[in-house]
Amino acid sequence: EVRVRALYDYEGQEHDELSFKAGDELTKMEDEDEQGWCKGRLDNGQVGLYPANYVEAIQ
């Protein structure tokens, strides 16, 4: 698992997508798939998908 930080706001479009604001931190659980989606977990425990290019790894 990798900690990542959102670069942009994202509003989930489907029930299985996460929503977050730029600057939020979350945990990447799985690497992106061929469509460019990652599985992650918000700090509130919600698990879902998000676009991989909306986040950067925290060093």
Rank of each mutant, 00 (worst) to 15 (best):
E17F: 09
C38P: 03
Q35S: 14
L42G: 03
C38M: 07
G36H: 13
A52F: 11
S19E: 05
L7E: 03
A57Q: 05
F20V: 02
L49Y: 15
Y50N: 02
G12Y: 01
D16R: 08
G36Y: 07
R3D: 02
K21T: 13
N44I: 01
Q35C: 08
E25M: 15
K28F: 04
E56N: 14
L7I: 12
Q59R: 13
Q35H: 15
Y50C: 08
E14L: 13
E1M: 15
K21V: 09
E25R: 12
V47Q: 08
E34C: 13
Q13W: 06
S19M: 03
D16L: 09
Q13N: 08
Q35A: 09
G40L: 01
H15P: 14
Y54A: 08
V55S: 02
E30R: 15
Q46G: 12
E25A: 07
E30N: 14
E11D: 14
L42R: 08
G40N: 00
P51K: 15
D16I: 07
Y10M: 04
A22Q: 07
E32L: 13
E14G: 15
L18W: 02
L18V: 08
G12M: 12
V55F: 03
Y54K: 11
Y50W: 01
A22T: 11
E30K: 06
V55G: 06
Q46D: 15
L49Q: 03
R3N: 04
E14A: 11
A57W: 12
H15R: 13
D43T: 08
M29G: 02
K39S: 07
K28N: 13
I58V: 14
G45T: 02
R3F: 00
A57T: 13
D43E: 13
E56P: 01
P51T: 02
V47R: 08
L49G: 06
S19G: 06
G45Q: 03
E30F: 04
A6H: 00
V2P: 07
E17W: 12
D9E: 08
K39F: 12
G36T: 02
D31S: 11
E11P: 14
T27H: 11
N44L: 02
E56W: 08
K39M: 13
E30P: 08
E32A: 14
D16Y: 15
A52R: 10
E30L: 06
V47I: 12
P51N: 12
E1L: 03
L18Y: 01
F20W: 00
K39L: 11
G23A: 10
H15K: 12
Q35M: 14
R41A: 09
A22I: 04
G23W: 05
P51A: 05
A57K: 11
Q13V: 08
G12T: 10
L18A: 01
V4I: 06
N44H: 07
R5A: 04
R3I: 05
V55M: 07
C38T: 07
L42P: 02
E30V: 12
H15I: 09
E25K: 06
D31R: 10
A6E: 01
N53M: 06
V55Q: 02
K21D: 07
R5V: 04
C38R: 02
N53F: 07
T27V: 14
L18D: 01
R3M: 06
G40K: 01
L26D: 01
A22R: 08
R41W: 02
N44A: 08
I58Q: 05
Y54M: 11
Q13T: 04
D24S: 08
M29W: 05
Y10F: 11
Q59D: 04
D9W: 00
E34D: 08
Q13H: 08
F20H: 00
M29S: 05
G36W: 05
P51R: 11
V47W: 04
N53P: 12
E34V: 10
E14D: 13
T27M: 10
D43Y: 05
G23Y: 05
L42M: 13
E11L: 11
G23V: 01
A52V: 10
V47K: 04
L42D: 11
A6G: 02
E14M: 07
G45C: 04
A52N: 04
G40E: 02
E56S: 09
Y54I: 06
I58L: 15
N44M: 04
D43M: 11
V4Y: 12
V47M: 15
D24M: 13
A6Y: 00
V47L: 15
A22G: 09
L26H: 00
D9I: 00
R3Y: 02
G23T: 05
R3Q: 07
C38A: 14
Q59P: 15
E32I: 06
H15S: 10
K28M: 14
Y50E: 00
R5M: 12
T27L: 10
E17T: 15
G40I: 00
D16V: 14
G12D: 02
A6S: 03
W37G: 03
L49C: 15
E32F: 11
I58A: 15
R41K: 13
D9Y: 00
Y8E: 12
L49M: 09
E14R: 07
K28Q: 15
N44G: 12
D24L: 06
L49F: 15
Q46M: 13
Y10I: 01
Y54D: 05
W37R: 13
N44T: 01
F20N: 01
L42N: 15
L26R: 00
N44K: 05
L42V: 05
R5Q: 07
W37S: 06
G40F: 00
D16E: 14
Y50M: 08
K21C: 06
W37M: 11
D24G: 03
E56H: 08
F20R: 01
D9T: 12
K28T: 12
E1Y: 03
K39D: 02
D33W: 05
G36Q: 04
G23F: 05
A6W: 00
V4L: 07
V4P: 01
F20P: 00
P51V: 03
E30T: 12
A52K: 15
G40M: 00
E14H: 14
Q46W: 09
E56V: 11
D43S: 10
L26A: 02
K21P: 01
D31H: 09
V4C: 03
D16C: 05
N53H: 13
E25V: 14
C38H: 07
Y10R: 07
A57P: 15
N53V: 12
I58F: 14
Q46Y: 10
M29C: 08
G40R: 00
Y50Q: 00
Y8M: 13
D31E: 09
L26Q: 00
E11W: 05
G12V: 02
A6M: 03
M29F: 09
K21R: 11
N53K: 14
G36I: 07
G12S: 14
Q13S: 07
D24E: 12
E11F: 14
V2F: 07
H15N: 14
D31G: 14
P51E: 03
R5Y: 07
Y8P: 02
Y10D: 01
A52P: 07
K21Y: 08
L42F: 04
E14I: 09
R41E: 09
L42I: 06
L7Q: 06
A22N: 06
A6T: 04
H15F: 15
Q13F: 03
E32Q: 15
V47A: 09
K28E: 11
V47H: 15
Y8C: 05
E30W: 13
Q13A: 07
W37E: 04
A52I: 06
L7V: 08
D9M: 03
E11Y: 11
G12Q: 12
G12P: 12
G48M: 01
K21G: 08
G40Q: 01
Q35V: 13
Y8F: 09
N53D: 14
D16F: 11
G40P: 01
G48L: 01
L49A: 03
A57V: 04
G40V: 00
D33T: 14
R41N: 01
G48Y: 00
F20M: 04
Q13M: 05
G12C: 12
R5L: 07
L7A: 03
Q13G: 09
R3E: 02
K39Q: 08
D16M: 06
L49S: 15
Q35W: 11
E34S: 12
V2R: 14
W37Y: 00
Y54Q: 09
F20S: 01
R5D: 00
N53E: 04
E56A: 11
A22V: 11
Y50V: 12
Y10P: 02
V2Y: 14
A57E: 07
G12I: 01
V55K: 00
L42Q: 08
